[in-house]
Design a protein around this nucleic acid. Sequence first.
DNA 1: AAATAAATTTAGACAAAGCTAAAAATATGT
DNA 2: ACATATTTTTAGCTTTGTCTAAATTTATTT
Lengths: 218, 218
Amino acid sequence: MTQSEENYLKGIYHLSHAGQQSVATNAIAEHMETKPSSVTDMLKRLAEKGLVDYQRYKGVSLTESGAQSALKVIRKHRLWEVFLVEKLDFSWDEVHEVAEQLEHIKSEQLIDRLDAHLDYPDFDPHGDPIPDKDGKFKAREKRLLSSLRPGDTGVCIGVKDSSSPFLRFLDKYGIALGSEISVTAKEEFDDSMAIRLGGQDLQISHQIASNLFVKPNR
Amino acid sequence: MTQSEENYLKGIYHLSHAGQQSVATNAIAEHMETKPSSVTDMLKRLAEKGLVDYQRYKGVSLTESGAQSALKVIRKHRLWEVFLVEKLDFSWDEVHEVAEQLEHIKSEQLIDRLDAHLDYPDFDPHGDPIPDKDGKFKAREKRLLSSLRPGDTGVCIGVKDSSSPFLRFLDKYGIALGSEISVTAKEEFDDSMAIRLGGQDLQISHQIASNLFVKPNR
DNA sequence: AAATAAATTTAGACAAAGCTAAAAATATGT
DNA sequence: ACATATTTTTAGCTTTGTCTAAATTTATTT
Ligand SMILES: [Mn+2]
Ligand SMILES: [Mn+2]
Ligand SMILES: [Mn+2]
Ligand SMILES: [Mn+2]
């Protein structure tokens, strides 16, 4: 399995919402920042290897084997992200690029020992679940902060957008995984909301609130 | 710089004894387990990029820039080996293959922080020196155990052969980096020697003694 | 100094992974 | 239903890195 193949499988996995739906060629091309014709070529190779079900013009979906491979890559990516943050003091907005490379290192022993070294984490620094050796992971109840209503409270458990600018914005305002958030008001007009966290009151736009996952209390 | 280019530079560096001598095409091919024609192709590409001095039929040598690049890869390889042994409890015969992959990860930040995390080690698990960011490393007085004479003593500080079978042999007989070794006798006939280490007496062949580096005591 | 052997390079293929431009299939609007 | 737009595929070309087989250069014998 080449790095490129692994990247395609991972991309298809995410675009298909964990292997549920089938995915369009153009969607893959956009996600991978490549051209649709290149995607078509790769889909043929992946189909040849039994990793995807592909009929031309009909979109593509992962086979069981393809999904398992994708999950292995995702497991590695997220474990490395934990390592970078926990052991090497990277901040959560600096880890993704490096993990994109590390996820392709081939060694069962390495990833098992890394997992143990990190004390078998369940979630990565962005709150995403880490699949175990068999590709299984814990699902958590999570809702977008934007779906809460005044009076509701919750704990921040993940981000939907994990781009550096967004993560740095959160750092700046002291919003981190584990933060207790209570919604004090919501503006009908632009869906912005007033929230209270750690003693301070903040006014956040809908764009922010709709990229933060919370575990609602109750 | 591609992975393959990095591997060639590293190979040439080692074959040229740290950039001293020039290296033959066939020697590179054998070392890299590839064909001489493939080597010729690559040498042209490396010469094009100013990483080697190459004239056809005349062998090849690293430029200053090529040597620096090789040293960066070697630095990464050896730091990762230390990490695997110190932090993930790999044994010294298990690290090489994985380090061969990890050495190609591109991130200054990663390798600097790894270096700090490991407390700036000077030597890798096989006793080889780790170049610093500028490619400089500490040279140590080291001699082959086979060059010592009865009555001489020394500390084991490295291995010449770092293959798994040899390293496991050393483990089996309790020979490790840091071991105090004294030569009690030497057989003229086959150059085997009797040594004493950690209370026990051992008889070792010339093949063993000529693959162990020691720092002689006076 | 030839003849022979060894080392090295060239020529021509191939696979992976990408691209552009053109063709074909599918979807949409009237 | 038909024209148009969108999506997807095909065809053909490029680069990297490999290979085999043949040609060439250099080294070693006789
Ligand atoms: Mn990531
Ligand atoms: Mn993540
Ligand atoms: Mn090594
Ligand atoms: Mn080593």
